[in-house]
Computed example of a mutant assay.
Amino acid sequence: MSWLVLILSGICESVWAIALDRSEGFSRIIPTVVFAIGLAASMGGLAFAMKHIPIGTSYAIWVGIGAAITAVYGMVSGEETVSLMRVLLIGGLVACVIGLKLID
């Protein structure tokens, strides 16, 4: 259960990061609300997962999932360039997250 919550929290991290960008400095209400909800869900889930999964592992997986999804979103939306090197590095990040799960 803790692993599922941690994965969902990592997804929520990307939600709040994207919403923060879309909020334009908290001047747009809907992205600001999405940011606040995503942040609360992400932090709450991370806190729950850290009760059962070591802090270093939890944090690394949480950040890795959020960073990978946010970077892919940036490329898919056209806000970031797509390059082979970027895709390979994000793939490496995902592989490291999977590796941390496998050894814990």
Rank of each mutant, 00 (worst) to 15 (best):
M1N: 08
L4Q: 01
S9L: 10
G10E: 07
G10W: 02
C12L: 15
E13N: 11
V15M: 04
W16Y: 15
I18S: 08
I18L: 12
A19N: 05
L20D: 07
R22F: 09
S23H: 12
S23T: 11
S23N: 12
G25H: 07
S27D: 10
P31E: 03
T32D: 03
T32V: 11
V33D: 03
V34Y: 01
V34C: 03
V34F: 01
A36F: 13
A36Y: 07
I37F: 09
L39D: 08
A40V: 14
A41Y: 03
S42K: 01
M43I: 13
M43W: 03
G45Y: 02
G45W: 02
L46C: 06
A47D: 05
F48T: 06
A49G: 02
M50Y: 11
M50H: 04
K51Q: 13
K51E: 14
H52Y: 15
I53F: 13
I55D: 13
I55H: 12
T57W: 13
S58Q: 08
V63I: 14
G64Q: 03
G66V: 00
G66C: 01
G66N: 00
A67L: 14
A67N: 06
A68M: 03
V72R: 11
G74N: 05
M75D: 02
V76K: 12
G78F: 02
E79S: 10
E80H: 10
V82S: 10
S83A: 02
M85C: 05
M85P: 11
V87Y: 11
L88Y: 08
L88T: 07
L89M: 15
L89W: 12
G91C: 09
V94G: 05
V94W: 06
V94E: 06
C96G: 12
C96T: 13
C96S: 15
V97G: 04
V97P: 06
I98F: 03
I98Y: 00
L100I: 04
L100M: 12
I103E: 13
I103V: 13
D104T: 12
